[in-house]
C-alpha cells in the first residue's frame, strides 16, 4: 500500500489488531454466501450480478490501492459527459 494518510492516527499494525475480528467475520459471511450459491440449484454463469461479485472479489486481493472506490465504480452505471446533449437538457442556467 502506497497511500498513507496524514490524518490517520493508527499504524497499519494497529489497524490489523483492531479490525481483524471484524474483517474475519465479513470474509466468512462472503464465503458462506458463495457456498450457498454453489449448493443451490440453477446456474449463475450468465448472471451479471454474479460476475460483478467475482470481479469485486478480485479487486479485494489485487495489488492496487483505492479498493473501496474501485469496487464502487465497478458496481456503477457509466457516466457519459455528453448526457445533456443526448437528453436535450440545457447546459446553461439563468
Amino acid at each position: 500500500m502506497s497511500t498513507k494518510q496524514p490524518m490517520a492516527e493508527r499504524s497499519a499494525t494497529q489497524i490489523v489488531a483492531d479490525e481483524f475480528m471484524i474483517a474475519r467475520a465479513k470474509i466468512v459471511e462472503l464465503a458462506a454466501t458463495l457456498d450457498r450459491i454453489e449448493r443451490a440449484s440453477g446456474n449463475v454463469d450468465d448472471s451479471k450480478n454474479m460476475q460483478l461479485l467475482v470481479q469485486g472479489i478480485h479487486i479485494l486481493i489485487d495489488d492496487q490501492v483505492e479498493k473501496a472506490k474501485r469496487v464502487q465504480l465497478l458496481m456503477s452505471r457509466d457516466y457519459d459527459p455528453e448526457w445533456q446533449n443526448i437528453m436535450s437538457i440545457s447546459k446553461k442556467g439563468g
Binding site: 448526457w83 445533456q84 437538457i89 447546459k91 446553461k92 442556467g93 439563468g94
Partner: peptide
C-alpha cells in the same frame, strides 16, 4: 454538471 453549468 448541471450545478457547474449555472454561473449563478
Amino acid at each position: 454538471d448541471m450545478l457547474m453549468g449555472d454561473s449563478r
